[in-house]
Amino acid sequence: MHIHARTFPSLVLAVALALGGTPMLAHHGWSWAEGEQTTLEGTIESVSMNPPHPTIQVRDAQGTVWQVDLGNPNQTARSGFAADTAQPGDAITVIGNRNLDQSAHMKAVRIVIDGQNYDMYPERIQD
């Protein structure tokens, strides 16, 4: 089989995307999270807006610090949540899906700060 010089870079890129994108898709999907949603109430410890997705560290009433993954940067911005929306010490309610391994890690579909809803995944909110 002969591959033309113009076709080869496209072929290499397609293979790299196919192989390299698999872990990213697995990490960013919902397969690692429970189907049933959980409500977490606590106090914000820190906010990170760094890619690949913003996160909030939340301390619950028992003292456990949870990692709460928000939407990707565009989803998070569309929800109205920005870097200056919340500060450490603010009360927060998180509605989302907990990690299947029962660790203190969850993916938020909605966060509530000072009575304001920030919907990361409005289509996934279970009433």
Rank of each mutant, 00 (worst) to 15 (best):
G20L: 15
G89S: 10
L100N: 14
Q87N: 06
P88L: 05
R6F: 11
T38L: 14
V65Y: 05
E41D: 15
A82K: 12
E34H: 13
T85V: 04
P122L: 12
E41R: 15
H53I: 09
D84G: 06
Y121C: 08
T93W: 10
I92M: 11
D127W: 14
T64K: 13
N74Q: 08
M24G: 14
Q87I: 08
A61V: 07
G96S: 04
L19F: 14
M1F: 10
Q37I: 06
M24A: 15
W32N: 14
W66D: 01
P73W: 03
R110H: 08
D127V: 14
S31M: 10
L13N: 00
V12L: 14
V47R: 00
T38H: 11
E123T: 05
G20A: 11
A82P: 03
I56R: 01
G21E: 01
V94H: 07
G42W: 00
A26I: 11
M120A: 03
T39G: 05
E36H: 11
Q62I: 03
N99C: 09
R6L: 08
M106V: 03
A18E: 05
I44F: 02
A16G: 11
I111S: 07
E34I: 06
D84E: 15
Q75Y: 02
D101V: 02
N74T: 12
M24S: 09
T85A: 01
N72D: 10
Q37V: 06
D114S: 15
A77Y: 09
W66M: 02
A86F: 05
R98Q: 14
H4F: 08
I56N: 00
N117M: 07
T43G: 00
L13R: 08
F81Y: 02
L25H: 13
I56V: 09
T55F: 05
A16Q: 09
A82M: 08
G89H: 06
G96W: 03
L100H: 08
T55M: 10
A82G: 07
M1S: 15
G71V: 01
S10Q: 09
V109D: 12
S48G: 04
V109P: 07
F8C: 07
Q75P: 00
A33R: 11
E45P: 01
D114N: 15
N50D: 15
V68N: 02
A61P: 08
D101M: 14
R78K: 11
R59K: 14
G115M: 04
P73K: 02
M49E: 06
G42M: 03
R110P: 06
T85H: 00
A26Y: 15
L25I: 13
S46P: 03
